[in-house]
């Protein structure tokens, strides 16, 4: 979902003689087995996974920017420590996912270049600005909340390295949502101005959060194959529904109102009816026309370019040390 299931390639032509392999491959997946890096896999499976994991990794990394924006201005030292720890976790999540993608034969530098050139996407949500401290609460509560909704089922995905990365990420993720909710709670119970800020943050982040699950199932073209391969577990609409059902009572608890007149409990389906986000806006943001697209990529490019001398210097230092040791063996044991 951080990949938002966009830009899939068409199904590759079946190479001669691979039909049997594909059948055996599908049987393993149906049998709940994990596919590991050295196992045979259809080329299209590999490519789809690289796209998914790459977009997911980019989202973790770019996602640090809107929150990083408020680290130096956190209202207390404790909030600052918490936000720092949270943003540091996201860097780790990016690393886990890049590493998992690398097992499929791409390099992290390739993926980074494709992000910077705009060839690969990241979640649309990170193209929205964080205007004030309440937004940091809303991001943790809603954005990390939506991410968790998607990531929990992906722990059972068919590709071993992806599944293991998801398990690790999920362990770290729930603190993210809680710290955000905690900020919202503090503000919702604060001065009238603070409550207004909290409401305003919810107003602005509600629909962009719903967009995180990707387009409606009616328009999501390539769900079928991905679900067969168990690299997608639930449909976009299923997850969106779950998210709304979970989040509305939390908003009520906060005394905040969800910005949707059509929101109503539907006894029959056992869930809320709600308005869809403006899909036109979504596709505009994905195309690069969101409020912060340029700023985000520019920040990533600057970090990459400005860090080049440092990466090179560390490589040069490592090479020099190795030479001095006469190409000595690097020791690792206790």
């Amino acid at each position: 979902m951080y990949g938002q299931e966009l830009g899939a390639t068409q199904r590759d032509g079946i190479e001669a003689g691979t039909e049997e392999l594909e059948a055996a491959f599908q049987a393993r997946i149906d049998n709940n087995e994990r596919i590991e890096p050295k196992d045979w896999m259809p080329e299209h499976y590999r490519k789809t996974l690289i796209r998914m994991m790459g977009q997911h990794a980019h989202s973790e990394i770019v996602g640090q920017l809107p929150e990083g924006n408020w680290i130096t201005r956190a209202p207390t030292l404790e909030r600052k420590q918490i936000l720092l720890a949270k943003v540091q976790d996201e860097a780790g999540h990016g690393l886990y996912l890049y590493s998992a993608a690398e097992t499929l034969g791409v390099t992290r530098d390739d993926l980074t270049e494709q992000l910077l050139s705009g060839k690969m996407k990241y979640s649309s949500i990170f193209n929205y600005p964080t205007l004030n401290w309440a937004d940091i609460g809303a991001v943790g509560w809603l954005v990390d909340g939506a991410a968790i909704m998607n990531q929990v089922p992906l722990q059972r995905t068919s590709y071993g390295p992806y599944s293991r990365a998801m398990i690790r990420i999920c362990k770290e993720e729930s603190f993210h949502q809680r710290q955000g909710f905690d900020i919202m709670r503090k503000m919702a119970n604060g001065t009238p101005e603070q409550r207004e800020m909290a409401q305003d943050a919810l107003n602005r982040f509600w629909y962009p959060s719903l967009m995180m699950f990707g387009p409606s199932d009616k328009e999501s073209v390539h769900s079928d194959q991905s679900m067969k391969w168990r690299i997608k577990i639930n449909t976009n609409d299923e997850l969106r529904q779950k998210f709304v059902d979970q989040t509305v009572p939390q908003a009520e608890f906060l005394g905040l109102s969800v910005p949707d007149d059509k929101l109503a409990w539907n006894e029959e389906k056992g869930g809320y009816d709600f308005s869809e986000p403006d899909w036109n806006e979504f596709f505009q943001v994905i195309k690069g026309n969101g409020p912060c697209n340029e700023e985000r990529i520019e920040a990533r490019r600057k970090a990459w370019d400005d860090g080049a001398w440092f990466r090179d210097a560390l490589t040069a230092h490592a090479e020099k040390q190795a030479q001095r040791r006469g190409e000595g063996v690097l020791q690792a044991a206790e």
Partner: peptide
């Protein structure tokens, strides 16, 4: 898991 680094120390 795994990670990239220039040498063992890093």
């Amino acid at each position: 898991g795994s990670l990239h680094a220039p040498d063992a120390e890093m």
